[in-house]
Design a protein around this nucleic acid. Sequence first.
DNA 1: CTTCTTTTGAGAATTATTATCGCTATTATA
DNA 2: TATAATAGCGATAATAATTCTCAAAAGAAG
Lengths: 157, 157
Amino acid sequence: MSNTVTNFTQRTINYEKLLGDFKVLLKKNNLKFTIQREVILETLYNSDEHLTPELLHHLLQDKFPELKIGIATVYRTLSLLEDSAMVTSLSFGAQGKKYELGAKDHHDHLICTICGNITEFVDEEIEERQHKIADELGFTMQDHSMQIYGICKNCKQ
Amino acid sequence: MSNTVTNFTQRTINYEKLLGDFKVLLKKNNLKFTIQREVILETLYNSDEHLTPELLHHLLQDKFPELKIGIATVYRTLSLLEDSAMVTSLSFGAQGKKYELGAKDHHDHLICTICGNITEFVDEEIEERQHKIADELGFTMQDHSMQIYGICKNCKQ
DNA sequence: CTTCTTTTGAGAATTATTATCGCTATTATA
DNA sequence: TATAATAGCGATAATAATTCTCAAAAGAAG
Ligand SMILES: [Mn+2]
Ligand SMILES: [Mn+2]
Ligand SMILES: [Zn+2]
Ligand SMILES: [Zn+2]
């Protein structure tokens, strides 16, 4: 059990709970609950992918054309959600960031350098070592991110 | 020994060797050995920091004002060096990349979220686990990067 | 409703990075 | 060393990603 690599695909929180948390957060900070913020949260929730702001914006335009959500609102809301730790971002070697809802359990990423696909995993041994290392070096650890780059099964053919 | 966290500060290659390698690399690819490429390599070698292209450009302007090195040359040369695996880059949550000479041994990073300082470390246990994980998931691992974010000793006061 | 405040979309501005181009420096070779 | 061929250079224009500005619209509270 302690040596296995686990793949996450399941959500660990339901949408109603998530939305409730979001509303509480907003109220606590004197922010308003807007339709834009709601549909952005919902769209993130319903996506299993890691989304760029641009891709998220396209999804929103497709699903909610009547709202005409602006790209600035997407950026603003992603920042808000990230600051509140409701989403996390992943920055790649090259350009841009990708966001995902943080309502999943913590995990790290295996990224195919050819097709760009991302496999998620978590390894308890590594998680433990990270804490030990931060302690030893006098850091109060807040977060960490780890990416393994390689060529996936498909791309090896 | 196998449970210790090691801090790297020393170089593992001397400059003459590095420069020789660079010249070989250039010749092999029909690229020319220019004074700009040389001083960029030298400046990277003499810096212990992780440099942004912009900061590197400033350093070059200070040390070699007569060359009037352009920012485009800095970007071009960093890309060349990265493609040739002579430097590696680190991309942060927010904006931009930072580069460092890859002539040091491989290591990961502990980054202070307040002052931005970077501590380097390597942990053999983690390195091993990373290989195992890639194998298990059918990836041919090419590289990896790991950052631990936290608050450093100084900033805790 | 009315008032007060926050948020929004559009588009301008900014920042980081890359592309273009005419001139210059390097390299190979005679 | 002189010459010719070619790659690299700096300046600057162009792009791409992100942030800012601002007037109008929407949400919260009473
Ligand atoms: Mn993920
Ligand atoms: Mn480093
Ligand atoms: Zn792939
Ligand atoms: Zn610090």
